[in-house]
């Protein structure tokens, strides 16, 4: 009966991949939350020489300015994941609201929103983001807003197509016949039924946002120094690869591991929401 035992049952029925994914995500979140406690040194603190090798003092050595690599990795989790999460959330608020509205209103409202979204989607996302960030500057706010708006176009398409299927169902017609307003129909009739596929999409979208922030940081237009960020950490230490040092791969691995884990969980949730059994 209670949600707690339901959650437990749900978790027990999860396949190993999803359990693995959930554990990794939980670990990342914990690291991000308790970064100042876990990290041995400060985020931008210069604690040694440049590019020091792995040692007892500096588990993963130091970077090109002499900052502790492990500490930066830990703080990087906080920045990269936090910003990606915020951005995805924003993208979903915009995209879902517009998508459900377009599907419910139909006709010209749908046409208008859909065509604007088509235009946004027609331009390659990364190039569009680079362009907009060049215009608006590389502040954190601009970064979050630009990526959120660009990604909300993708979310819109999912939300709209999911809602299109629901709008035609009889219970929505019944609500219309009752005289319900737009807000009730969208919020109480359609949204609860559109939620499962949207939640799954959220996980997927989070990965994309995460990757595009990392990509932008790598290109120098994302999260700005001295904030630690995995994308820019790859770039800053890229030269080490030439010397056979795998240190620059650590932030890359952190990105890859989180992306894979999120996808494991999303796959499982998609499976659940589609009502398939094994």
């Amino acid at each position: 009966m209670t949600t707690k035992s339901e959650t437990m049952r749900l978790l027990r029925s999860a396949p190993p991949t999803a359990v693995f994914g959930l554990l990794v995500i939980a670990l990342y979140v914990a690291v991000a939350m308790f970064a100042p406690i876990i990290a041995p040194y400060g985020e931008a603190e210069i604690v040694g020489g440049r590019h020091e090798v792995w040692s007892d003092e500096h588990a993963f050595g130091t970077d090109q300015l002499g900052r502790d690599m492990l500490s930066r990795l830990i703080y990087g989790a906080r920045n990269t994941i936090g910003i990606a999460f915020l951005t995805t959330l924003l993208a979903f608020l915009i995209g879902t609201a517009l998508g459900l509205l377009a599907a419910t209103l139909g006709r010209w409202a749908d046409q208008l929103i859909s065509r604007v979204v088509d235009v946004v989607i027609a331009i390659p996302a990364l190039i569009f983001a680079l362009l907009l960030l060049t215009i608006f500057g590389t502040s954190l706010t601009a970064l979050v807003l630009v990526i959120a708006v660009l990604d909300s176009a993708r979310v819109f398409r999912v939300a709209r197509s999911v809602a299109m299927g629901i709008v035609t169902l009889d219970f929505v017609e019944a609500a219309r016949l009752r005289g319900e307003g737009l807000v009730w129909i969208v919020k109480d009739e359609i949204l609860p039924n559109a939620a499962p596929p949207l939640v799954a999409e959220f996980g997927l979208r989070f990965c994309f946002v995460f990757l595009s922030i990392s990509a932008l940081s790598f290109l120098g237009l994302g999260i700005q120094p001295p904030l630690a960020d995995w994308g820019s950490m790859v770039r800053e230490n890229a030269t080490l690869i030439t010397f056979g040092d795998i240190t620059p791969l650590l932030p890359a691995t952190a990105i890859a591991l989180l992306t894979v884990s999120v996808n494991f969980v999303v796959d499982w949730m998609l499976h659940k929401s589609s009502g398939l059994k094994e």
Binding site: F171, A174, L177, D188, P192, N193
Partner: peptide
């Protein structure tokens, strides 16, 4: 048009559907 009817006019004409599966919101 349904949008132009008053609450009372709407109230007096109700409908029962063929497929109860789709006529009731599964999340309510």
């Amino acid at each position: 048009v349904v949008d132009q009817r008053s609450k009372d006019q709407l109230r007096h004409v109700q409908m029962i559907y063929q497929m109860a599966d789709t006529a009731l919101n599964p999340k309510q």
